[in-house]
Nucleic acid binder design. Structure first.
Lengths: 190, 190, 190, 190
DNA sequence: CATGAATGAGTATTCATTCAT
DNA sequence: GATGAATGAATACTCATTCAT
């Protein structure tokens, strides 16, 4: 169910792969996707060759980074959905998604990819999230906590937009809260 | 009023400059800022040399594009402010800004530049807009149409975010309207 | 006698031409031949078009600069030869040539061109100088003031070399004199 | 002893680097420093990328070429100084320096760099040579073989100048010898 | 498997020269 | 004649990707 079957990777290879993902996540988030592959490899303590062995393309690396993020979100989302009532779960998830989107506009792209085209590998992860979000939305709407006319596309667009707003706003927590106030109040019926 | 005086520019030169700006605006918006300068020049029907005569740097070209956008917005904003009552003016301007932001995330950058630092040339245009937006915001707040705790930074962030949301959503007018409903309702007090 | 016949040039055109030559001489000497034509034109207070009307090529401009220098040297050389005895005339001319070669290695090139290939226009001026130098050399040799085995090529090479040495040395007059002492003593028989 | 330690470089990499240096030395000497990097790379049988991997800048390549020349001269100079008496050592070194300066005015630049400022990397090599030359000069002066009033700057200038003279003169060995006669006799006291 | 040297297409920018105004 | 806008070939340098060691 998760693409082509892969042999289990030797321990060091797995470590390299994980380190590359960590470094790339950090680097893409803080400095954008324009950073040269060599630099990422060096920061991960491996040669470029190794990077390209694990990820045949720079784009593949970016994709893997996004997938990992999406999967993390999917997991947390599932937890939250289990822990809380529908309405609360919905809003906590919304907030979670935004808070996860630290760094540049890279995550916006990730979500955008989830919503729009999505390369093969992303497809799967984003489908999971989309399904989860759809479920949360429906639950919140049935609970009368969210405007009933909103669809999944609008929800995702609002998440992307709120993420962009936060990114532009910077770190001021009070201001961030005011943004959430606006969006969350706006989401409520009437 | 805006820096060194410039001689009026020959007719053909002015035409080329304008064409370059138009093409660059379009191209940056649809395909991002990574598009080669040569391609922009070719699309404008001139040689690269001409492009670099008018804009000494690719960045200078981008800046000029943004300035033109900001100035257009400033003008329309002023008109709207004069025509309507405070509350209506505020919401019409908000919508105007978003509707002007067609194409990729390029406009988000323009507004971001307006909100953050911006090179010298942008500074002026963005100051004008910021002042105008501040005035509109204050007016709408005094009229009781907008939450009083919001400041200019939050307003700009919300505009950037709403633009991003729209971009991600695509053209569907009903869905766009639902986004506006959320944001505008959220902006209102209580 | 001086190449193709030219119509006498209108007064302003002649002024422009002279100004361009002056500026180019200065600029080539102080900043090398890499300076853009536009800059030379601007410094002369004319447009590039005018520059290229007078000198169809950048190289042609450089050539004209050299020719003027060579002609000036030829004139001074002739004067000196008339005023002094052979031996003194020789050494005064040598010194003159070196002192004229202010600035960069541009004059070395001019003399090199005189000695070696020389584009058509240079040919004539350099021939005049070569003849004059040959005469001075022969006179000094007959007067027993210069080693009899030296030929014109060696003399020119020594001038080029002394010019290069001076250029490298800078302005210190005492040091320059010591270079002259070495070369002049070396030129004497025995 | 000379800056950061460098790992030994793989065999093929070392070969490429050496080939590039050889080619650049030849090409800069015969055709000047204006030769395109691509051409140098092609002549060395590598891609441009390889050239820029070894020398991050065209200027760095030129510098490396000069350093190699200076070092070679320093080595030979030291040998000669050890083999001969002061006076003979001085003149043999002078001749050596000149004979090494084949090709255009490129070596003049190298020596000029040695005499004037020079980028960091050149500094060291040129210091070695300057010290060696100063020693030779002092020795020859104490032996009464060279005019006592000459300093190191004049000596270097004379070398640069003699090199320029030779370059201008071409290959004729008899004529070259006559130039040496003039300069060497001129260097002697009285 | 890991390494990092090699590759070369791609990009912004300059500048001699031409030509419409 | 003079002007300076337009041209486009040329050039240094970057970076994703391949492959010999």
């Amino acid at each position: 169910m998760s693409g082509a079957q892969e042999r289990p990777l030797r321990a060091d290879a797995a470590r390299n792969r994980a380190k590359l993902l960590d470094v790339a996540t950090e680097v893409f988030a803080t400095r954008g996707v324009g950073v040269p592959t060599e630099e990422i490899a060096r920061a991960a303590g491996v040669g470029v060759g190794t990077l390209f062995r694990h990820f045949p393309t720079k784009e593949a690396l970016l994709e893997a980074v996004m997938v990992r993020r999406l999967e993390a979100i999917a997991v947390r989302t599932t937890q939250l959905a289990a822990e809380s009532e529908p309405a609360e779960a919905f809003f906590r998830c919304f907030r979670l998604v935004i808070d996860q989107s630290e760094g540049k506009n890279e995550f916006a792209r990730a979500l955008a990819a989830a919503g729009v085209d999505a390369h093969a590998a992303l497809q799967e992860s984003s489908e999971v999230i989309r399904a989860r979000l759809a479920g949360l939305l429906a639950g919140a709407q049935q609970a009368g906590a969210v405007r009933p006319e909103l669809g999944l596309p609008e929800l995702i667009a609002l998440m992307v937009g709120t993420g962009a707003a936060m990114e532009h706003l910077g770190a001021d927590p009070a201001a961030r809260q005011r943004i959430f106030d606006v969006v969350f109040d706006g989401l409520r019926p009437r």
